[in-house]
Nucleic acid binder design. Structure first.
Length: 824
RNA sequence: GCCCCGAUAGCCCAAUGGCAGAGGCAGACGACUUAAAAUCGUCACAGUGUGGGUUCGAGUCCCACUCGGGGCACCA
């Protein structure tokens, strides 16, 4: 038996179109004669840790909706992809299996790339990059040296975060709740000399420029960035120490309360504390040592508990208040952090909750200096922080908080004992890593010349082969053992010298990759400044909220530096940001150990690429998590077949004049185009899919029990249906396009212009309410006057019955839609 | 502890302050079929977490609370 109709088969369709697209390359954005306006849509590039998983499938499905939408709107869309290919996981996996991290990485990339092609992402395959390629990371090195030249890359010794399991240092941003972000080990401190990028130089701009992104980035991300940078404005104040030449400098946001200081606190684990205690009485020294021991033993988890009782040791040393000459006892405590501000504070218990808790715990006096509406803290022993009038404060008396702060700073400045100051929670970015699989730091250490940058003509400093190197973590970089590689003559004096053997944090790679896509293979420059003018900044960035702080902050920092270097003319890299949610299974993140892992490859085999992509888009708002248990790829597949059959049932030729088609079907198509466009532009992809389904239902009905498949309006509807569907289900849409008699590719066909005249209606259903409740409806002309509509409503039997005996209070008329009759 | 987001039908989710339902899943029924599947069609189901308030009119705005999710948390 032969059927005139083909059956819908996702596998046949996939096989049919993949090779055709490979040949057509519809998403090549670099054709020189392309006159379309440009748009840059970027998906966060993946880490090649294995094949693609459900999370990738969601992210790339959603990014593709946006990219394909703008292509359908007539833009030349740059939508590139690459691999964030350096980093610990590859190295760890390689160690575990005794493989070369390089081979392992490139194998995974090949696998992911094949999967992406099958997944039909609209990537521009002419612009692929991999950060582990020397042609890429040589520009990391070039940028490092540019930063170095400008004093933005420097080396210092300090107590750094150390992961004993990964055996490497971590940036502040990689320590989450005292644990290593990567492996959840308890992070410890270690004194090491390390390379830093001077992010703090840009702290103000990184904070202030967030305002520019308001409305275009998720509010949540902006808040997280603001919290992270956390600027506080106040003053540095220097206190002399009695019987000493040394002084204590503190940072305070409330210099106005200086007269209320009744004690000083230095961080117990600071150098200052140890110095001060030297001249303390012997029993204090012993008490301090045991206290310090306890502090050092307590881990970060304990320290982070805010409801912990305050403790401390009175050092029996005294500081002199620079305003009133008062002697203030100095304490050592762990509630003051050694690495924030100056590691010391002035204690003003009357107006600081924490200082009050400390004063209460150790029985210290309280002195009110700001009179507020609240009870006097000297009596209540509860700190007040509101505005008020200064009292007990000499020359500051009578001033309000803000004036007093200004005045206090003025006095301190005059006397040379202080000045206005700012502090940030944000620290400089520690970029050295004691691991193999990363970008070598292009510095040579010479015993006589010191730090010497590797000369430009010797870049890139390529990673040596991992063969023969022990990659297992041992606290120092494996590169140090590569004798042939590490021992080099000094570029300055030609004497024996050694390469810096650390590698860069991989966040360096991802801080500027969006610019490298413009010329991913260039040997001459990091990126072409002219191309950057054309394409950058990124119009739309798509990725997970997991990178809300780290990656986005660093990329913003790099962009500002590049701006100052004159290489780009913008100072924010990502104009708009969309954070997609995660894919869960039965309420929790998928994992093998939890036994709720859903394999992407199995889903694709079972339901096809289009059904999975459609399911991702239809599941809900993109920023929400998708619980795979709640969605139905089988239903998506069923719908795709239904849409596909519409194309098959179109019986008119492709040259037919669609304007001759049925008006109501045409109206449905054009109102669909309008709604669909709005939905996609506001990221309501789930609503967009619903609209596509709605149009499909209309067309089905028109074919089966309406105007029939030969009506030109049905063709028009089916064509727009195929184009719209191509955002979610490119294979099915392409095949529909074929059934409709067109040449590929439907993705370039372009959505039809909305014909507004088709949307104008002659009549509308008006509703009549009594006290806000619906009582009657009637079909009226859209041009009905208020008076006519009021009469109509008041004449309605149903309305009259609802009013009953009640007296009318008001009649609200919103012609032509609504009448509301309010009764008394 | 502070801040933000959410709560609509059995489920996932829609709804410029104006008819609570666009779409889907699951369900019931019908057509087609010898039958079933597939397909096509029809239908039912909630008054919007709780309590107040504003308004002619509140799912939508305001206040308080409950629950869920997220962020921050001794940063001086």
């Amino acid at each position: 038996m032969f059927s005139l109709h083909e059956e819908y088969s996702f596998s046949a369709i996939q096989e049919r179109w993949l090779p055709v697209w490979d040949q057509l390359q519809p998403f090549d954005s670099s054709r020189p004669d392309d006159s379309r306006p440009r748009k840059y849509v970027l998906d966060m590039f993946p880490y090649p840790s294995g094949d693609l998983h459900m999370g990738h499938a969601e992210a790339y499905a959603l990014g593709d909706v946006i990219s394909r939408y703008w292509i359908q709107k007539g833009y030349n869309v740059l939508h590139p992809i690459g691999w964030d290919a350096f980093g610990l996981p590859a190295e760890n996996a390689a160690i575990k299996r005794g493989l070369d991290p390089r081979a392992w990485t490139y194998e995974n990339i090949a696998q992911q790339k094949a999967s992406m092609r099958r997944y039909a992402c609209s990537f521009d395959w002419t612009r692929v990059l991999q950060t582990c390629d020397p042609i890429y990371y040589r520009w990391n090195q070039w940028l490092f040296l540019e930063f170095y030249k400008r004093g933005l890359a420097y080396r210092k010794n300090s107590n750094v975060n150390w992961c004993p399991s990964c055996q490497t240092v971590l940036a502040n941003e990689q320590v989450v709740q005292g644990l290593c972000e990567r492996c959840d080990s308890q992070v410890t401190k270690k004194a090491l000399t390390q390379w830093y990028f001077k992010v703090t130089d840009y702290a103000d701009r990184l904070l202030d420029d967030l305002d520019k992104l308001e409305g275009n980035w998720p509010a949540k991300v902006l808040t997280m960035q603001r919290n992270w940078i956390n600027r506080s404005v106040g003053a540095n104040v220097r206190f002399a120490i009695a019987d000493s030449k040394r002084e204590i400098e503190v940072f305070t946001t409330r210099p106005d309360t200086l007269y209320g200081a009744t004690f000083m606190v230095v961080a117990a684990d600071s150098d200052l504390a140890s110095e001060l205690v030297v001249d303390s009485p012997a029993h204090v020294r012993m008490e301090f040592v045991s206290y310090l021991e306890k502090v050092k033993q307590s881990n970060d988890i304990e320290r982070l508990a805010t409801d912990r009782p305050k403790t401390g040791v009175k050092l029996e040393r005294y500081a002199i208040n620079p305003l009133n000459g008062e002697k203030l006892p100095i304490y050592a405590s762990d509630y003051v952090l050694a690495d924030y501000g100056t590691g010391a504070i002035m204690g003003v218990p009357a107006h600081d909750e924490r200082d009050m808790a400390f004063a209460n715990a150790l029985g210290i006096d309280v002195r009110m200096v700001v009179q507020t509406e609240n009870e006097n803290p000297e009596i209540s022993r509860v700190a007040t922080s509101g505005d008020g009038v200064l009292v007990n404060s000499g020359e500051l008396n009578g001033l309000k908080k803000e004036q007093a702060i200004a005045k206090a700073i003025e006095i301190l400045t005059e006397r040379g004992t202080g000045e206005a100051a700012k502090n940030f929670r944000l620290r400089d970015w520690l970029i050295s890593r004691q691991r193999y699989w990363g970008t070598p730091i292009p510095i040579i250490h010479c015993p006589s010349c010191g730090e010497v940058p590797v000369p430009q003509d010797q870049l890139p400093v390529e990673l040596p082969s991992s063969e023969g190197l022990d990659l297992s973590p041992k606290g120092t970089s494996p590169l140090g053992a590569a004798a042939d590689w590490v021992n080099v003559p000094c570029p300055k004096c030609a004497g024996p010298a050694r390469r810096d053997s650390d590698t860069m944090d991989t966040f360096v790679d991802s801080s500027w990759y969006f610019l490298r896509y413009l010329n991913p293979n260039s040997e001459e420059f990091a990126f072409d400044v002219e191309e950057a003018k054309k394409w950058a900044p990124v119009d739309q960035y798509v990725g997970g909220v997991t990178h809300a702080i780290l990656h986005l902050l660093y990329a913003r920092f790099f962009t500002k530096v590049l701006h100052d270097m004159g290489m780009v003319d913008f100072d924010e890299p990502f104009t708009k940001l969309l954070n997609q949610g995660m894919v869960l299974m039965n309420g929790s993140a998928m994992s093998k150990s939890r036994g709720n892992l859903v394999r992407l490859s199995e889903q694709l085999d079972e339901h096809g690429v289009d059904a999975i992509r459609l399911t991702m888009a239809f599941a809900g708002p993109p920023e929400d998590d998708i619980d795979w248990a709640d969605v139905s790829p089988a239903a998506s597949s069923k719908f795709l077949a239904r849409a596909w059959r519409i194309a098959q049932d179109v019986a008119s030729s492709k040259d037919v004049d669609v304007t001759a088609g049925d008006k109501s079907v045409r109206a449905a198509t054009h109102s669909f185009l309008k709604d669909f466009t709005e939905s996609i532009e506001s990221f309501k992809f789930n609503v967009g899919v619903a609209k596509v389904m709605e149009l499909t239902n209309v067309l089905r009905k028109a074919i089966d029990s309406g105007v029939g498949g030969a009506d030109p309006a049905v063709r028009e509807g089916a064509e727009e249906l195929a184009k719209a569907l191509s955002l979610f289900a490119p294979y099915t849409a392409e095949d529909m396009w074929r059934l409709l008699g067109h040449q590929p590719s439907v993705s370039l066909a372009g959505l039809r212009q909305v014909d507004e005249s088709l949307l104008v209606k002659d009549t509308i259903v008006a509703i009549a309410q009594v006290d806000g409740k619906l009582r009657d409806k009637f079909e009226v002309s859209v041009s009905i006057t208020e008076d006519e509509l009021r009469e109509l409503a008041l004449a309605s039997e149903l309305v009259r019955r609802a009013i009953g005996e009640k007296e009318l209070a008001a009649v609200i008329v919103r012609a032509p839609k609504l009448v509301n009759i309010a009764t008394k």
